[in-house]
Design a protein around this nucleic acid. Structure first.
Length: 281
DNA sequence: AAGGGAGTCAACCGCGTCAGC
DNA sequence: GGCTGACGCGGTTGACTCCCT
């Protein structure tokens, strides 16, 4: 015999969560901790599927989530992690502990994919001056009831217990990383301003076919434009980020990522440098 | 002012993996 | 070892908002 069924689909409510439902869910998790999602609907009386409860918690109600206003540093991280790991949003999110995989996925699909396409078209042009992406993206404000709910939950978050978590992503979220919203950040592509992370030469080398043993801009199978970095590297990393014990020399791209973390994203290093290295290498 | 298209994001769906029995 | 269900993940959808005509 296996486990009992998750939830019968009869009478299951769908659609947006109400603040009342949020409060019920949060109160329950406050008392019992996250996990055992199957029991959540029955114990709380929520007419929601356990899956929906888990999703609501992990993507929205979980403490420590930062919403909206992706910094340029975060943007750069996403771009490069996506190039290395592909569309493995959970893995990417583990390096951006304040962001959910859903958030990153949405941001990629709505902002970065377009930006990368634009960049792809300009890559053929001789001047890197035109490679500066539109930096207004990160300035959008997140307008929803989230803030109200956040305020609602603030009191709980202060006194919230720190349950033992299983995944690295969940572990990261418990590390109480200071918000990077106001952190001075630089952008990989902000070359002309002089404040960029990398110089023209470095950017050129990053984009160089020779240096990356086969960098290419391609259409992925899902019709999303992806930046395929060093092919061998991608192949090596992609299969299993959990291949912790496989060591190899750093690529230029990976070095940049690590340097970036050390230089600007100190929170990243404080966070879990070992995890970062182990997962990548 | 109204209608339509584009953009955004929360939530759902389906599949693969893991774990209990 | 096989079956079954929970969990986690990535892709997709649909509702909502904004902007343009």
């Amino acid at each position: 015999m296996g486990r009992p069924p998750c939830c019968d689909k009869v009478g299951i409510k769908k659609g947006p969560w109400t603040p009342e439902e949020d409060i019920i869910l949060v109160s329950y998790i406050q008392q019992n901790g996250p996990g055992n999602w199957r029991s959540v609907p029955t114990n709380t009386g929520l007419m929601r599927c356990s899956k929906s409860c888990r999703l609501r918690w992990t993507n929205y109600l979980r403490p420590g989530i930062k919403r909206g206003n992706f910094t340029q540093h975060e943007e750069g991280m996403i771009i490069h992690l996506q190039a290395m790991l592909g569309n493995r949003w959970a893995a990417i999110a583990s390096y951006l502990p304040q962001r959910t995989d859903n958030d990153i996925k949405n941001y990629w699909n709505t902002h970065l994919k377009k930006k990368m396409k634009k960049l792809q078209t300009t890559i053929d042009q001789p001047s890197y001056e035109s490679m500066k992406p539109d930096m207004n993206v990160g300035s959008s404000t997140y307008a929803s009831s989230t803030e109200n709910i956040s305020r609602l939950l603030e009191g709980w978050m202060r006194s919230s217990p720190k349950p033992i978590l299983k995944t690295s992503q969940e572990k990261h979220t418990q590390l109480n990383i200071p918000s990077t919203t106001n952190t001075t950040t630089t952008n990989l592509f902000d070359v002309s301003s002089g404040g960029g992370v990398i110089s023209n030469e470095e950017l050129e080398s990053l984009l160089s076919y020779d240096n990356m043993s086969g960098i290419a801009w391609e259409k992925s199978s899902t019709d999303s434009t992806v930046f395929h970095g060093c092919q061998s590297m991608v192949e090596e990393v992609k299969p299993r980020a959990e291949d912790h014990h496989h060591h190899r020399p750093l690529s230029l791209l990976e070095k940049w990522l690590l340097d970036e973390s050390a230089g600007h994203g100190e929170e990243m290093m404080e966070l879990d440098t070992d995890c970062f290295s182990n997962t990548l290498f």
